[in-house]
């Protein structure tokens, strides 16, 4: 068993309420709690008894190597995969999320790295896709445009010149900003971002990270998947590390440094870092 900075069980079933393991969350309210989430694809066990708490108003970074199970975990939250076993608690109550629509109704919005926007539609049309406002059964372009502008202004997205320009003409960072804005404009309480900065340059990354920070400061829970530890240390309040389907470590960002994070990611254990607690194993 490992216990630094905070451990959760790797292969053994959890004994006792897992919330106790994650004492760092207590300062703010836990919005989403996963208890013992397991997901098998046939013989492949992609998630092994994952416990995780995602507090409101904070950025939780989910890190781990390729194939660790990060995307599978967020898909279980977003209603794309049904977990094989385990519980999802939303504001302390158990919920069952069967479809992306149901996740959205709860207030969970997912921003995918790609495949999220229609290039041939403009910014407003993309932001309202699937949620168009109508008046007398006709699209209400004016109220949608006003609302889109307001959301972008609220999020300080100022680089988009016109909300009536086609998304195809936007830069990668602008596109990502639009995707994030689209997610938050529907009153989302949890925004999940899967590698939002993977394809971006320096200034555009900064733009998106700033946006993530803005979301958290508004009380929204953010779950951020990233392979870029520099980004994680800039923007995250909490870190959760996955290793081969296990959630091996989680805690406030202050408990980690780059070296210990790399250890956790590559070996599923760490003896170094800001936390002095050595693994028990």
């Amino acid at each position: 068993m490992t216990n630094a900075p905070e451990s959760s069980s790797t292969s053994l079933p959890v004994v006792g309420p897992p919330a106790h393991l994650d004492s760092g969350v207590s300062s703010s309210s836990v919005l989403l709690e996963l208890r013992g989430i397991t997901k098998s694809f046939g013989a492949v066990q992609a998630l092994k008894h994952v416990d995780l708490e995602v507090p409101a108003g904070q950025v939780t970074a989910l890190i781990g190597d390729n194939g660790a199970g990060k995307s599978t975990l967020i898909k279980a939250i977003a209603g794309i995969y049904a977990p094989t076993s385990g519980q999802i608690l939303w504001n302390g109550e158990e919920v069952h999320v069967h479809s992306p629509r149901e996740a959205e109704q709860l207030g969970i919005a997912t921003v995918y790295q790609d495949l999220a926007l229609c290039d041939n539609l403009d910014v407003v049309q993309n932001m309202f896709l699937g949620h168009e406002e109508t008046r007398y059964h006709q699209l209400d372009e004016i109220s949608m445009e006003l609302a889109a502008k307001k959301v972008l202004a609220d999020l300080s997205v100022t680089t988009v010149k016109s909300v009536r320009q086609k998304v195809a003409s936007l830069s990668g960072g602008q596109r990502q900003s639009i995707a994030v804005a689209k997610a938050v404009m529907r009153d989302s309480k949890l925004v999940i971002l899967d590698e939002p900065t993977a394809a971006l340059g320096v200034s555009q990354t900064a733009q998106v990270l700033g946006l993530i920070h803005t979301l958290a400061s508004r009380g929204i829970a953010v779950l951020l998947i990233s392979h870029n530890l520099a980004d994680v240390f800039v923007v995250a309040d909490r870190v959760a590390v996955m290793y081969l389907g296990n959630l091996v470590s989680s805690g406030p960002i202050s408990d980690y440094d780059t070296a210990s994070a790399v250890d956790w990611i590559t070996t599923g254990a760490s003896t170094r870092g800001a936390s002095t607690m050595a693994p028990a194993s």
Partner: peptide, 25 residues
């Protein structure tokens, strides 16, 4: 095509079917 949701969705699907699907279309 320009005033109804269904018309908008035809464009969306033609532009990016997966994005449309994820948006609930």
């Amino acid at each position: 095509l320009s005033r109804t949701k269904a018309g908008r969705y035809l464009y969306a699907i033609g532009g990016n079917a997966e994005a449309a699907r994820r948006a609930g279309v």
